[in-house]
């Protein structure tokens, strides 16, 4: 089984996000980047499939600051090849990004064909499209997203579970090769000790791969007018004090509403 995982670095939203002076973008200098959460699940699902069916997992990530950490961590978790794609900027501009990634996959000898391409179902900065369906489109492959399990792979087809709503799910059959947008892996992403990542840094070689035509992170047919903190109808009234004081105030509020 040949599995390719396409991952991406995105801003860590636990940190404060600063708008750049142009008022139209994030101040990327001030950002801490982490692996997109559902990409992490895509990697985990690929590793679980490798354990089940055997084969090889290749992780491909567009270049970004700290991308090395992500790739070494992936290797420490069990990825067989880790590749950095040069010449693509992350950020807004998913349509351009996905086109470049698809072109790079096609142009790099030995990468395609694979049985499955797995990537996150959605990332927090996917303004102009989602990576999974776009890569599928450019490679001419079928796609399904919000995947939470791969139940069977046989006869050139995979059975996958997709989440709908209110706890309803659906089992789909998809012809291989295919692109899956993974929502969550069947198990939480594995933890890998720092020592193992350090060992990977010494033993694993990150392969470099040049995108045939470098693309800026740009939007197509869309112009960003402004970026701002959300406009809200009303913000919460904030309660302050020691935990005991706040607890008392909350109890008062609940009592007033007959909730205690």
């Amino acid at each position: 089984m040949n599995l390719l995982v396409l991952m991406r670095m995105v801003p860590d939203v636990v940190e404060e996000l600063e708008i750049a002076p142009d008022g139209k973008s994030l101040d990327r200098e001030a950002l801490r980047l982490i692996a997109s959460e559902s990409d992490d699940h895509a990697l985990e699902e690929a590793l679980l499939l490798k354990e089940r069916y055997g084969g090889k997992v290749t992780v491909v990530v567009p270049d970004a600051p700290e991308v090395g950490d992500l790739l070494y961590t992936a290797a420490a978790k069990g990825a067989d090849r880790v590749i950095r794609l040069r010449g693509i900027k992350t950020g807004l501009g998913v349509a351009a990004l996905a086109r470049s990634c698809a072109a790079a996959l096609q142009a790099t000898p030995g990468l395609l064909p694979v049985n499955l391409i797995l990537t996150g179902t959605q990332a927090i900065e996917d303004l102009d499209g989602l990576v999974a369906p776009l890569v599928a489109h450019h490679l001419g492959l079928p796609y399904i997203g919000v995947v939470t399990a791969v139940t069977e792979i046989a006869d050139g087809k995979a059975s996958v579970v997709k989440e709908f709503q209110a706890g309803y799910r659906g089992e789909f059959q998809i012809a291989l090769p295919a692109v899956l947008g993974v929502q969550s892996a069947e198990k939480p992403p594995r933890y890998v000790p720092v020592a193992k990542v350090r060992a990977a840094m010494k033993s694993v070689k990150i392969e470099e791969c040049e995108v045939p035509q470098p693309t800026p992170a740009a939007l197509e047919g869309i112009e960003v007018l402004a970026m701002s903190k959300p406009e809200v109808a009303g913000r919460a009234a904030m309660l302050e004090g020691s935990p005991e004081e706040v607890a008392g105030k909350l109890c008062d509020l609940l009592a007033e509403r007959g909730l205690l």
Binding site: V13, L127, L219, M227
Partner: peptide, 16 residues
């Protein structure tokens, strides 16, 4: 549009 887990709002104009 709402991005970054609800932390940022983006106004965009379509040119196509």
């Amino acid at each position: 549009c709402v991005l970054y887990g609800g932390k940022v709002e983006t106004r965009v104009r379509f040119s196509k």
